[in-house]
Amino acid sequence: MSSTKDRTPRGPSSPPEPPETESVKSNFSRRGFLQGAGAGATVLSTAALLTEQEAAAAPPPVTGPGAVEISLNINGSEMKANVEPRETLLDTLRNHLDLTAAKRVCDRGTCGACTVIIDGKVMYGCTVLAIDAVGRKIETLESLSAPGHKPHPIIQAFVNNDAQQCGYCTPGFVMASKGFLDRNANPTYEDVKKGLTGNLCRCGTYMGIRKAVLEAAQELKTGGNRA
């Protein structure tokens, strides 16, 4: 921690009154907040916000820059890794936890090969810091395979429709498809085309992927029992 010296610390005794108070009093509509935040978000009461303000008295901790042990909730398990704050979630999965389904391809949040699901939403693992994923629910492609079970309907649909060639983009596409189908149980062909535009394939497997996602949607509706 070399960085605090050249910064003016601003404790509670400093004159500024940050915007919290005003916001709490007049700017927050709980109804609107609820609406915006969506299901599952924590709704803060005024009391909670006041508590939050009081908590501001404590200086916020800075982690790193050296490696620290973090615990990540991955596929339902807590997994520990010793990483620097600059480590991405993707590199942590691949290099520290040997979870290599997610691939590093563009490494700049463009191609989708590293797609994972965090708190129910598809995201690019290459563009999330591992330390930022602490406390969030991370799902990787590995979660779709259970020992002794048939392949997940999405995986099977990719195979049935030959929606892969070299296969290096495929894990990302399967996860993007899962995220898409979780939110669109009855997609049309057009929906599929518009819903998977966050991933790129080089071999050219898109025709198979379109069919695979439609087939998987059917399968997940009609059976999908994976026992």
């Binding site: 290599t100 389904a101 392949p151 999405i154 995986i155 990719f158 195979v159």
Partner: peptide, 20 residues
Amino acid sequence: NRLDGVAKASGKAKYSSDLN
């Protein structure tokens, strides 16, 4: 269907870049 289809689509296939 390709024989290694499930391995690839499930992420179990180990590419050289996946080896640790």
